[in-house]
Structures are given as structure tokens and as C-alpha cells.
Design a protein around this nucleic acid. Sequence first.
DNA 1: ATAGGGTTAG
Length: 757
Amino acid sequence: MPPAPWPTPRTVRQAAELHARLTTSGHLLHHPPSARHLLNSLVNCLEPHPLHLRYALHLFDRMPPSTFLFDTALRACSRAGSDPHCPFLLFRRMRRAGVRPDGFTFHFLFKCSSSLLLCTMLHAACLRTMLPSAAPFVSNSLIHMYIQLGLAAEARRAFDEIHVKDAVAWTMVISGLAKMGMLCDAQLLLSQAPVRDVISWTSLIAAYSRANRAKEAVGCFKTMLSHGIAPDEVTVIAVLSACAKLKDLELGRSLHLLVEEKGMPTSENLVVALIDMYAKCGDFGHARQVFDAVGRGPRPQSWNAIIDGYCKHGHVDVARSLFDEMEVRDIITFNSMMTGYIHSGQLREALLLFMSMRRHDLRVDNFTVVNLLTACASLGALPQGRALHACIEQRLVEADIYLGTALLDMYMKCGRVDEATIVFRRMGKRDVHTWTAMIAGLAFNGMGKAALEHFYQMRCDGFQPNSVSYIAVMTACSHSCLLNEGRMYFDEMRILYNIHPQIEHYGCMIDLLGRSGLVDEAMDLVKTMPIQPNAVIWASILSACRVHKHIDLAQCAAEHLLKLEPDEDGVYVQLYNIYIDSRQWENASKIRMLMEERQVKKTAGYSSITVAGQVHKFVVSDKSHPRILEIIAMLEEISHRLKSVGYSPLTSQITVDVDEEEKEQALLAHSEKLAIAFGLISLAPNLPVHIRKNLRICEDCHSAIKLISRLWNREIIVRDRSRFHHFREGTCSCNDFCKMMSAVSSITMFSVHPQGW
DNA sequence: ATAGGGTTAG
């Protein structure tokens, strides 16, 4: 029977029609080439659907076995994503039927295997049974499989074992290692490769860029050009992403010109990369030119790139109007827009977007939740943070290491060390960031010893600290006044890890020396450090001077501060207080005049407390609260009970010329006391009273709150500008270092927010 | 019938 001119089916349905015709004509049973043609083309149009696969295997079962047929059946499994046992059952049948496997057999088996164990067994079987002539194919697919499984060492070994390596083997191993972040190995192999094609270079460039080593990515690109290799469209995309990170507009622009000059195909990806580069560099003229010309398609990628650019440069409103114009928004659109709102302090808008995601049928992902947790952390919004935690517990999003770290950070920044610790303990995987967040959190919650114990444990578990970890460690030392430890870690970071102290590390060390009364030594460090001291450092010196009575040095520090930050009221107030302390009335009034002259505005202090999901905000002498009468009654009771245990208000804190009685009243009206009074009358007795304050807590309030915590047997938590105070049974976790309140807030604890949630 | 590179968000 002559071979029939059957058309090649393109869909499963067409294959089924051919099947029917071959059956009725008798070709299926009596003309093997036609049958093979049918099965082969059926496999080509398979979709990943179990029914399709079953159909193909059913057809396979009815044909006489051969190597080609088994290979085709295995190909079907690898295309259709079968149940994991199926390919190996097929392989066993093949061996039992005495059909010899060839290179393709192993290629498709490798494609189906999902574990190192399987691969190793297959590799061994392959070496036992394969003809050496088929080896190059198989070695390459073996490398491919190891790379897919993320097994770099195995991929490398398989590559090294090949005797005659072809160009694909080199390219594959170089790009595979680059993709897995093993950039040194990839770079070395590239220099040894006999053929260095554009694909190997491109994968290395992209890998450098992804690893935030954009400078090296550009260096790599230049080396490639010097070797006479011409970049193609994909190379340009990779280099553009490096330009975006470096804000190298010049190189980015020249790449754009190159694309136009050479008439390279401008795929959607290239358009996205161009818009992203221009937008990240802040060149919105060109970004808009490209975007308006070719970027306004229905797909969201190019919109996302320009929206992100506008957000990053503070044009959140422009970003929003583009957002509203879009037809199809994806999760990245929402996340970028929300990040923009969060960074510009518009937390309400971020929350509204979050809630509208459900209406758009978009599933919240862990990126979204990390974003929102960050917002809660900077707000100290504990109830909202807890609600997000509940979303995670209900498995609405899959918990990962970023999410766990953000969650523990949120609890820490809301002062809930206990809950943060539970999250930390339950995390299956931790990385340097997780440990650092834990150490930093313990540090600004006043648990310096525990922070250092965690640092020790972190290193026992094999994690190498980075410079941020050392900022956290130094913060722990300075907030808990651990002088010897601080000195040790400050030296150790250079010696053990070659981490050179940055301004933040110096800030902590200087603060620590100042707190410990070693003001001269602190000043020596300021003079000898290789970095220009900033305002934080001078503020540390200044407050050390106040506590340890170094008037001359205080004046010097204040002069530096006034130069660096002439509009900050803190400096004037601090210096004024120092003059008052040392009874230099004349200098004190000079400072007040200077302040008026320069029209320095005092930052309005406020305290807020959340009761039943509602934020209540108080400023000094605030009478606007609806329950003000009850609050005043509570304040009077507080005042009465405090006095009955021998407390006298620290009226020296008040620097206005009024009589003692008025001073007492003024202290009583401090916003934190108002908030606490409100907390005491409105919260259930077993709940802690949790206050957030935008400035530092004053010394009088600090001692008063200690007593209140004892008299009312209440836990009181105050988050001020740079740290937490946990008041319990008459003591505070900060060990009264608030007397020398740190100007150091090296770890961003607090961001000012215009309105609550 | 086979195997290699890229963009947008922490």
C-alpha cells in the first residue's frame, strides 16, 4: 500500500479526524509509517491536558513497539506534564520489551525528572546502556536538566565530564551558572570558551544587572564590544536594565540610537526596557515619547514601567492618572502604585487601592502584603498589621522569607517583641535580613543583651553579617549602653569581615561613648574619622554634653548643627536647655531671640493611640476630644495619685516664665499624658496602653509614666522618635537612658504621616 | 524529534 498524502494535523481535533480516516481505510493497522505520522503529529499539538495525554498513550498502546515510538510517548509525557510516574513506567516497559533506548529516550526522561536522586539514577542508566555516538546530545540535556533543577555543582560536573564539548554545551553552562548567580564561575568559563557568542555574553550581562552589580554589567558589555561581538536586541534589553539602575542616561540614550540606526526589531520587551530606563533616569520627555508612540498597548508592562518611574520621582499624581487610563491592570500595576503612595505618605490611598484589588479580581500576592506591612510598621499600625498576619495564617498568600521578615519587622516596630519572636521562631527559613531585622528590633526595644545573643546565634548558624547587621548590633550597644561590647564589635567588623564603618556605625559608636561619659573620646573619634560628620553625630555630641555638663563643647557642636540644619528647632531647644541648666540666662535668651529672628518653627508634638480601630490624636493642651471632660478627670486622678507616692513634677523642663502651679498644669497637658489618660478610661483593663509619639518623650512624662504603670498595674508602651519604652511595674525597658535621649535613629523607625488609616 | 540569552515591583 503506497504512503497516503495525509495532511499534517495542527490541532488535537484534526488529529482525531485523521485517526478516524486511518482506521476506516485500514492504514492504522497495516501501514506503520502512517500510524507513526499520526502519533507524532498528535504529540506536536498536545496541550498540557490529562485527556490529551491519555489519548496519545492509548494510540501508542495499539502500535508495535520501537525505540522511536517509545521516544514519542516520552515526548508526549514531557510536553503534557503527565503524572510523575508515567515516564518511568514507560521506561520500565521499554526495557522489559527489549527495546533499546537511545539519546532521545534519555533526553525526554531527563526533561520529566524532578529530583537529584532520579537524575543520578538516570545518568547511571544512561552511561550503562547508551551508545557512545549519542553522547553529546545526552550530556547537553543532562546539563540542561541540572540547571532547571537549580543544581549548579552537578551541572558543572556534567559539563566537565564531557570530552568533546560543542558550542551549545559551553553557552548552556555559562548562562546556567550566570542565572544561578555564580558569576565568578560563569565569567571564568566565558574567558576559557573557544567560542564566545552573543548569548553567553548577554546572559552574563543580565546576571550582573540582576545581582545589583550594574557597573560590572556595563563593563562586561564593553568587553563584549571590544571582542567584536555585535549586540542584538536581547543584549540591548539587558544593558538598558543596568543603565536604569545606574541612572546612566547617556549610555541608555546611545543604546536607543543604536536600535534606531540598526533598525533592530522593537519588541514589546525592548519598549518596556527603554521606557523603564528613561523613567528611572528621570528623563520623562523621552520616556513619554516612546510610551506615547508604542507603549500604549493593551498589555500592562510598559504602563507599569512608566508608572513606577513617576512614583519613584515623586509624581504620584501623574502616575495615578495613567493608572486610571489603563484598560488592563495586573498585580504589578497595583503594587507599584501602592508603593508610590506609601513612600509619599499617602497611606489611606494605598489602603483604598489594596481594598479595590478584590473588586478587580486580583489575588493579593506576598509582594502586596510586604508593601502593606512596611506601611504598618512605619505607622505603628498594629491592628492593621495583625489583620495582614491573619491573611497569611489563612493562607491567602503563601508565606515566604520576605513576608516573614516584614511581619517580624512590623511587630518589632509596633513594640510587640513577644509576637515578633513567635514569628521568628516559626520561620522555617531565615536569611541575613531576617536575623538583622530581629537584632535591630530587639535593639530599639531596649533589649540589647538579647540582640547580641541573637547576633551570636546568627553566626553559629552560618550567616555572615553584613554592614546593616553591624548597624543593628551597634544600635543595640548604644541603646543599652554596652560600652565594652560596642568597642569590640566596632573593631571586629573591619578585622573579621572587612566591613568599613559607615556614618551610621560611627554615629552609634560616638553616641555610645557620649552616653558613657567619655565625651572627649567621642570628640576624638569625630575628629579622626574619615567621613564628614553629619547632623546626627553632632546631635549625639550635643546631648552627651548636656548630660555630662560640657558647656564649651556643647557650643561647638551646636554651631556645627546650626550650620547643617538651621531650620530644625531641636538644636535651639537643646542649646537653650543647656544654658538654663548651667544658669547662663543671658545666653539662653540670646538663643530664643535667634530662633525668633530666623523664624524657626517648633515642630508640633503629638501622641496618638488606637482604640477599637479608631486613631485618636492629641496635641499639647488639646481640648478638642469629645470625651475631654472624662480625660481631664482622669488626669486629675493621675496627678493626685502620683503626688501621694511622693512624685514631684519636673518643672525645670518648662522654660517659660510662669509660676509653679502653671508649670505643673502645662506638664499635665503634654500630649502623651492626654493619650494615656484616654487609654486608661477607654481600653479594657487587661490591654496594654500603646502610644505613638512623633517627638521624643520628655523626662517628666517618662518618670510619671513609670509610676502610672505601677499604680494602675498596666503595661504602657510608648514609641517615640527613635525607640520604644516598655513601662511595666514602675520600670522602663530603656533603663532611663531617656535622660540622655539618643539622637541616633540609624534604623529608620518612624516616618511622619499626615493622616492615620 | 534536541539543547542556550531579556523587561516591569520589595
